[in-house]
Nucleic acid binder design. Structure first.
Lengths: 227, 227
DNA sequence: ACCTGAACACCGTTCAAGT
DNA sequence: ACCTGAACACCGTTCAAGT
């Protein structure tokens, strides 16, 4: 009787039981807070107030954990990206933009999408893009190429985004980081890197997101021109 | 006198001194033979008949080693890709195809290009592509977008290629692996994944390399349509 | 100057032991 | 059924000691 009352009085101090959901949620928080290198079974166990071995009862290993964490970010993003009345082009643009925002908020997602061959979150993206490509009335034989081109382009940007986040010191904002990259490029040997030097200035003035969407538009233009 | 003669008689048994070149060369061999997870300072040291600490005299750490190994594959590939008389489109296609072959031979390169933000090998690729884009008479403001779109697409394919190589068991060839992926896709829930299911069959019949170049062509079409 | 290899501070993962 | 945490088999990296 006493112990029950005591428990009831401090419900917030009771540790909820471990679950796949709680573990994945804590992993996402940890990845957001300290980056890919910070996700450790020991750190995760400490955050969950348990031992590292406990996690293995719910999740097979680190690979599965990372896929689940990636899916936890990507799946809701895709569901939110369903604009009802829009042209297929607009829908693809919106989908890509939403994905960009999600990857911008969780840069480690960009690396994870590239780590496994077609993991569940990637299949989700392919499916969404494919559906929109069909709506564009692309001939069936060309649908696969069109969807994969868009997907691979998104993957490339996602990967670079993750690489940037890995390198940038946590303090500096993206503006400072891009400035640093741009000045490195500007100092390249003009004989060997004429184009990259010329283009270095645009790194500073261009908006990442706009630049990304401009690439999407370029591919969409290619798809339309083929039709 | 005796020792000198002995040395001269067995020159092939003398261990060449360590050098950055030898280390990087051994790293490439190790990566090709046993994959990314097999490149270890201990394994590398054993191959070089020395201790792990010796490597650090010549190379700052594992990151620098991986960048150097990647550059050792990419730089010669790019130099070989200089077709003198070709249209800019043909030149970009050739460049992309040669890169694909290099990444196909050394799948770990695909992952490394995505790991660091614009590492030297990536800048080389950007520069080459940029030069060809200029030759296409793309307006200056659009050159950056055009080159980055091509580059990011290549990066996406490269990353997926690396992911496939990481997963496929060393014994199986690519045909078997793609069959396995295709049959996984074919078993997806038709309600959730109609497009991916439809397209699963094309995974088997399509040639990776042709599919990759078809994406390059699609982007080139987009660039041409904008001009 | 260059190499050696033991030692340090970590990892992911396992597993006997507990509840 | 689920959790604990010590232990195992690794890592990258450092550094005193050698040549």
């Amino acid at each position: 009787m006493r112990t029950m009352a005591t428990r009831a009085r401090h419900p917030e101090r009771r540790q909820e039981p471990l679950s796949r959901e709680r573990i994945v949620g804590a992993a996402v928080e940890l990845l957001d807070a300290v980056g890919e290198s910070g996700l450790t079974f020991r750190a995760l166990a400490e955050r969950l107030a348990t031992g590292p071995g406990a996690i293995y009862w719910h999740i097979a290993g680190k690979t599965e954990l990372l896929v689940a964490a990636t899916d936890a970010v990507v799946a809701p993003t895709l569901d939110a990206a369903d604009a009802a009345d829009a042209t297929p082009q607009e829908a693809i643009r919106t989908l890509a933009g939403d994905l960009f925002d999600a990857i911008d908020d969780h840069p480690w997602v960009g690396a994870q999408l590239n780590r496994a061959p077609a993991p569940p979150p990637l299949l989700r993206v392919l499916e969404r893009i494919g559906g929109r490509v069909q709506a564009l009335h692309v001939p069936e034989a060309a649908q696969f190429t069109a969807a994969c081109t868009l997907l691979n382009y998104i993957l490339g940007v996602a990967g670079q985004n993750a690489a940037n986040a890995r390198t940038a010191q946590p303090g500096a904002d993206r503006g400072e980081f891009l400035d640093a990259v741009a000045s490195t490029w500007a100092q390249l040997d003009p004989a060997q890197y004429p184009f990259t030097r010329t283009v270095a200035g645009q790194l500073r003035t261009h908006d990442d997101r706009e630049e990304f969407l401009a690439g999407i538009d370029l591919i969409l233009t290619g798809i339309a021109a083929r039709r």
